[in-house]
Simulated assay, not measured.
Amino acid sequence: MNSMSLTEILSIIGPETVNTLIMVIVSTVLGYVFGIPLGIVLTLTDERGLKPNKTIYFILDFIVNVFRSIPFIILLVWILPFTRAIVHTTLGVPGAIVPLTVSAIPFIARMIEQSLKEVDPGVIEAAKSMGASTFQIVIHVLLVEARSSLVLGTTIVFASIVGYAAMAGTVGAGGLGDVAIRYGYQRYIASMMYASIIVTVIIVQLFQLVGNYLAKRVDKR
């Protein structure tokens, strides 16, 4: 087994931790930008939704299920041409953000759908009886009533994307996954492997704690 000094470990782990955070945060935000509308449409067009539409629901549900079924490492390779077309590279942080976002969108959409369907139907009926439009119900009832569940869902999404980002490191995306592969696995530097694992666990745990705290704060039930 090879070894490295603490200074050398930190000089490598520090920048790659930043790269991991950039990949995860940007792809999570982009995932929600596209995932929230998709999740709302799935909720509305469901047979028990406010705007039932079997055709639209079937198509969107099928697409979401297909992309959620593809293992991330396969998706990563499959959409390389798409990634190159969008960011003109398949390497580094930009090359990882595209597949991470694509994998996050259907996952987030399903999380949004499940959270919104947990809202008490009685609250929705009360809003409808007062003349609220579908848009008003979505904004002022569904999203508000489901806010605690939505926040907890974000912590799950974040943890999943951290794991995906580590996989992206196997194909030159950088980040903590890349460190674990290049130094821990290929060069047999155990300290770098352990450092990557510890930092990754810390990131996920901190976000989980923040998510749990915020979920309790916004839960007014």
Rank of each mutant, 00 (worst) to 15 (best):
G174R: 03
I189Q: 14
I197K: 02
G177V: 04
T170H: 15
L176H: 03
Q186Y: 12
I197A: 09
A168G: 14
S196I: 04
G174A: 10
T200P: 01
M193Y: 14
A190C: 00
M192K: 10
A173E: 14
Q186H: 02
I181W: 09
M192R: 06
M167A: 12
T170V: 13
G184Y: 10
A195P: 09
A190Y: 15
T200H: 01
Y188W: 11
L176V: 02
V171I: 15
V201L: 10
R182S: 14
G177Y: 03
V179G: 07
M193N: 13
A168L: 08
G184L: 07
M167V: 14
G175R: 03
G177Q: 07
S196P: 08
G177F: 08
V171C: 04
Y185P: 01
R187W: 03
Q186R: 15
Q186L: 15
I203Y: 05
M167D: 10
L176F: 00
A195F: 06
I202M: 05
Y194L: 10
S191L: 13
G177C: 08
I203W: 01
I202S: 02
Y185C: 02
M193G: 15
V199S: 04
M193D: 05
S196R: 06
A173H: 11
Y194F: 12
V171M: 09
V201K: 00
I198V: 15
R187Y: 02
G169N: 04
I181T: 12
G184Q: 10
A173I: 06
G177A: 05
A173D: 11
